[in-house]
Design a protein around this nucleic acid. Structure first.
Lengths: 344, 344
DNA sequence: ATAGATTACGCAACCGTTTGCGCAAACTCA
DNA sequence: TGAGTTTGCGCAAACGGTTGCGTAATCTAT
């Protein structure tokens, strides 16, 4: 029973003693096929439950109507939200989405790219691994006319299509707020030096201090490897200073979760003895008792769906009868602080 | 520049004045091709950077080496973990994964199935919509020889392949623990009646009471539509009883989050004045101050990767030279309670 | 020297559909 | 009635690769 082939156009042709081309045209209401023949073809097609094999068509079109998405880790709400945004955009364009999680591993990222290339996806959306610092594996895709659009974690290069998020905007809002609340000694818990995000946060930190005319003090800048024990060490170092900061900018919400635990253990009150600002805006805060004053929202969904829009633009241009040389598609959206201070 | 076609086997053939079949065989080290010819072919292939077009091969094989995954919502950690399990299994078998989020909407689920069928995936893994109660859209896949394996949210039918989780196991552990701690008045906050999960929890509840020889009291069984306001109403109803339950089994962790907030608002202490047990085992508890005594872990990753294993078994059998009539692949794994009571 | 085996390759079909071109039959008009 | 147009359909190639079968040329053995 499972042996029976699906009805094809040839099968219909055979039954009606016409050619396959006639059947194909009849099914597309081609004017050069007579009404009678068209009707007979449609009838048989109906009876057989014929459906065109899209794979054959796609193969002929040299398209797959599939895009690939490479992201570090789906368990991060940011990326699952991003994927959802992409899926929505893809659905609207009748595209499928195949995913690959790099797990922040460069070799995996390369392998996924290779695999997606083999499967001839029509385009790829990427948010880079933390480890990624060379991009040859993406350059290779040009040969296959597979466009790439990066989002959020984008290469440090100019000649790419991307959508990224400007973290400065949200952080400036947040620090201004801290200052307005009377804070003047604001610390920083940064990430490991090898990450681009770490340098970025350092710059943002300096810039925020400067714009608010705050003094700079190396003592209240610490860093963590992002391991839990190290997160605790970092925050403890700050709160045990003779003159601890009254507010701290934290690398991200995950680090902050550990910091909050440490602060409580030390008998201090969050948002009273010490306030926090962080990056990511995890949905988790909604349910927590102790929350940062604000977390910087980076709009996963917005970034990814815009990146998807860029990608479809590139794909459609390449597929159009006369493709033009598209300018680089680049966009930076502003982050925003999301306030959580419930005492207000 | 983007016009240049990729090198094909025909291109190589033309350059060497041999036939395409010779090239194909040479590239596969077929013994009937002479060493000299083989070398020459390989050399040119190398020079041109030839790579076989997998899509052409897949088309001929009538396979796509792609499986579809239909899940309700990626933002739920359960499903993103499930997807990760599937992706790992797929990668090991050199398969790709295309995803579709049904968003718990039956019509979307149908549409996604249709779409995956069009794309001729080699198989589909499904966790059903809350709304899904008919399954014709899956039956239709038989015609296309697309096997389906359900996981976690499975159809209420016998003739299917599935992996599910037995919630009773974990809940019995949890209730036994409650009883051991001295609780004898255990309430239930259930979900909306139309959900299968609601009936299921009611049965589990009764069974747990019975096995522990606890009295049954309709007053401490309430339900919620799962909306936040309704969650609050439900828990408030319980804590405002003349004789409130000392412990409550809650529909799931999301409902419980609201319950905990309400309990605190009422000035009660979680795990002291009232204890909770819930379903889902969200990773969030790790970071919370107020936690349930235990949450029932349903092993998303384990379920989904086992389901993926089933699926590949079905796919490979169908693709084998002599497919056999496989028995239904069914497995139920036991849930386990995960304790969170940190006071211990 | 000749039958038989071996070596090395090409032809053509196949997967399912689309489409440019050609052509015969029917029709139109002068 | 004959030239020109329209109608309706088939042939064959194309997408890129694989494979069963046929066959010419060379080699082996008697």
């Amino acid at each position: 029973m499972s042996k029976n082939k699906l009805p094809t156009i040839k099968e219909i042709a055979k039954r009606l003693n016409v050619s396959a081309s006639t059947v194909s045209r009849a099914l597309h209401d081609h004017p050069s096929i007579g009404l009678v023949t068209t009707m007979r073809v449609r009838k048989v097609a109906q009876e057989l439950g014929y459906e065109a094999n899209k794979m054959a068509i796609y193969f002929k079109e040299r398209k797959t109507y599939t895009i690939g998405v490479i992201i570090p880790d789906l368990s991060e709400p940011f990326f699952s939200a991003a994927l959802t945004g992409i899926e929505d955009a893809a659905e609207a364009s009748n595209y499928n989405v195949i995913i690959g999680q790099s797990l922040d591993n460069f070799e995996r990222e390369k392998k996924i790219v290779e695999n997606m290339k083999d499967h001839r996806v029509d385009g790829i959306l990427v948010s880079l691994t933390k480890e990624t610092s060379t991009y040859e594996h993406f350059d290779g895709l040009k040969k296959y006319n597979i466009p790439v659009v990066f989002f959020d974690r984008v290469p440090n290069r100019k000649d790419i299509n991307y959508v990224a998020c400007n973290l400065v905007a949200g952080m400036l809002q947040a620090v201004s707020k801290l200052v307005a609340m009377g804070h003047s000694r604001i610390g920083l818990i940064n990430g490991p030096a090898k990450l681009a995000a770490t340098l970025q946060r350092l710059e943002i930190y300096f810039r925020c201090l400067k714009e608010n005319n705050l003094p700079m003090d190396q003592d209240i800048i610490v860093s963590t490897t992002l391991a839990k024990s190290d997160n605790l060490k970092a925050i403890n170092k700050l709160i045990n200073l003779e003159e601890p900061p009254t507010a701290v900018i934290v690398f991200n919400d995950y680090v902050l979760l550990d910091c909050i635990a440490a602060v409580k253990t030390a008998g201090l009150k969050v948002n009273k003895d010490i306030s926090f600002i962080s990056f990511a805006n995890l949905p988790i805060w909604e349910y927590m008792d102790s929350v940062p004053l604000a977390s910087i929202e980076q709009f996963a969904n917005k970034q990814s769906s815009m990146a998807a829009g860029f990608l479809f633009k590139l794909i459609n241009n390449a597929a159009s009868p006369n493709p033009v040389e598209l300018p680089l598609l680049q966009h930076i959206i502003d982050s925003e602080m999301v306030e959580y201070n419930r005492s207000k």
